[in-house]
């Protein structure tokens, strides 16, 4: 495949949405393509109108997590200036992976604590509601069989207080084994439809879940399968994270004299 035009990865709002090691997700895509002789060029898509043209030249997209204030600024830009081109690209089979705040932006709307309805991109039928509870910790799920992962466990870390509700007919990315997931109650985590996938798993997500990284690469390249590569570093980091998630999902029980974690937070 060498010598061809490099694959273009559209990284949405790399400055505003980069809170939880999202650079690791980009690195995983670049390196796992490179190790198969495929060049992958990262195209930053920032605020402003020229981002739409840049997006039009990309074969796949990624959007990460951000702070509340940044997320609000991004939401408007995303809907007004990038919404149309993303919708079109995705309908033609380009993958879009969204993590944390990025996942929330894919939905129809976000309901703040004050009851204000902030519109989202509407690419997936879901919405998010602000809550007083913070869902923080290691998160381990079994992925939906439709994704056809050989090892269906996905592992990462979650930190959100928005609760995300999937509307009728939308498939969760998977079911929670350890941790909280979309609402802390439904045992559902994330959501996916065709080539659009959103999740609360960060940590970052792709280095420790290489099969999901390859899912994105396959769709971006339009290939049925990719040649296997040596996964030993990824696999041992993955096993370490799985062991940690299994050991520690209820540490808070041991805290003394009410010195709890602060929970007051907007989103």
């Amino acid at each position: 495949m060498t010598g061809e035009e490099p694959l273009r990865l559209g990284h949405l709002y790399p400055k505003e949405m980069n809170l939880y090691g999202d650079r690791g997700n980009i690195l995983a895509m670049v390196l796992r393509a490179q190790r198969r002789g495929i060049g992958l060029e990262v195209v930053p898509i920032s605020m402003g109108a020229d981002g739409a043209d840049r997006a039009a030249s990309c074969s796949g997209f990624f959007i990460g997590g951000g702070q509340d204030l940044d997320q609000d600024a991004v939401a408007e830009d995303l809907i007004q200036l990038k919404g149309e081109v993303l919708r079109q690209k995705v309908s033609l089979g380009a993958p879009l992976l969204a993590v944390c705040a990025g996942f929330q932006l894919l939905g129809t709307h976000y309901l703040t604590a004050a009851g204000t309805r902030i519109p989202g991109l509407g690419l997936l039928p879901l919405h998010t509601e602000a809550s007083r509870q913070r869902l923080v910790g290691n998160l381990m799920i079994t992925a939906d069989p439709g994704l056809e992962l050989q090892d269906p466990i996905l592992i990462g870390f979650e930190n959100h207080s928005g609760k995300t509700y999937l509307h009728e007919g939308l498939t969760p990315l998977g079911y929670v084994m350890h941790g909280q997931g979309n609402t802390g109650q439904s045992r559902q985590e994330g959501a996916w439809r065709d080539t659009v996938l959103g999740t609360y798993l960060h940590g970052p997500l792709l280095p420790k879940n290489p099969e999901l990284c390859d899912w994105w690469l396959r769709l971006a390249l339009g290939l049925e399968c990719l040649p296997p590569i040596d996964d030993s570093l990824e696999r041992s980091a993955r096993l370490e994270a799985i062991a940690v998630a299994q050991r520690r999902d209820d540490f808070s029980r041991f805290r003394l004299l009410g010195r709890g974690l602060p929970t007051k937070r907007a989103r």
Partner: peptide
């Protein structure tokens, strides 16, 4: 450390040879 292997993966991705 308890996350030594994640650190090794990070270094590997940063171009530190095994």
């Amino acid at each position: 450390g308890t996350r030594a292997r994640e650190l090794a993966l990070r270094l590997g991705y940063a171009g530190v040879s095994a």
